[in-house]
Design a protein around this nucleic acid. Sequence first.
DNA 1: TATATAACGTTACATTTTATCGAATATTAT
DNA 2: ATAATATTCGATAAAATGTAACGTTATATA
Lengths: 142, 142
Amino acid sequence: MNSSLEKKALDFCIKNKHRYTKPRESVLRIIASSNKPIKAYDVLKHLKKVLKNPKPPTAYRAIEFWEKYNFIHRIDSLNAYFVCEAEHLHSGSQFLICNQCGEVTESHICEIPKIIKKKIEKNIFSAKSWNLEVKGICSKCF
Amino acid sequence: MNSSLEKKALDFCIKNKHRYTKPRESVLRIIASSNKPIKAYDVLKHLKKVLKNPKPPTAYRAIEFWEKYNFIHRIDSLNAYFVCEAEHLHSGSQFLICNQCGEVTESHICEIPKIIKKKIEKNIFSAKSWNLEVKGICSKCF
DNA sequence: TATATAACGTTACATTTTATCGAATATTAT
DNA sequence: ATAATATTCGATAAAATGTAACGTTATATA
């Protein structure tokens, strides 16, 4: 599928001296190949086709790695992971989650980071990262 | 502590013909008494002081009940529950989570519901509920 | 090559959540 | 009041999710 993503990932690893290992490569491919957020244990199931007898930590470690560097995001309300669709690095994420069909799209309402930054300026809170999950019905479902 | 909340909860149950049972009463009190989001199993620990040998479903059912009617919110990124500090009913929630001291405050950035509503008008997505969790450092910690 | 570091494999376990089912309690209609 | 109905609970069990620990392997660096 998204082999440009894999290239980007490989480049990233080389540039930053991280290892592009088999578990990492496979896990990223599995998550990127899913059109919906995928759960850790489902990632693990797919991993079994590629690695010999992988255990939960294998999946979780690779997930954690890619999440840390923003290649994937965790959808907290679903306990699931989704490839990042943004081109730019971002410390905040936004998702629209359809309760009907389960489709999740990463949104880019640019007012939201602005508003959060405003809070910082007021010295109320120094935001490092944030996540917005909106649930409802997508345009295809109504 | 917050006995006005308990009164509000009782009134709500009477008005809507829900039962204000011992598990529900206790669980709400436990969560409201905590100054930080509290996990289900910690709720359960406290429940043991009040009920005889409660099991996980007892806690989870009461949690689910109060969450459904917006008396408490689930903080997805923490797997924890927090009493709702808003007076009004709201379909969206916002939290500022301090990575240092763990303090969580419910914020009320009113631009956010406005922005989400704007999306609806554009027919992009029909939002039913939403949740924003911002992580960083609170004003007390820096 | 020696050393340090990063990542992995494996085991075992901890935590969080849910399904099921019968009993108890409350509500409603008769 | 009593029967029928719906709600909630108690208890058991298990599923789903996530992590600690530890020794081994692979890679990078001196």
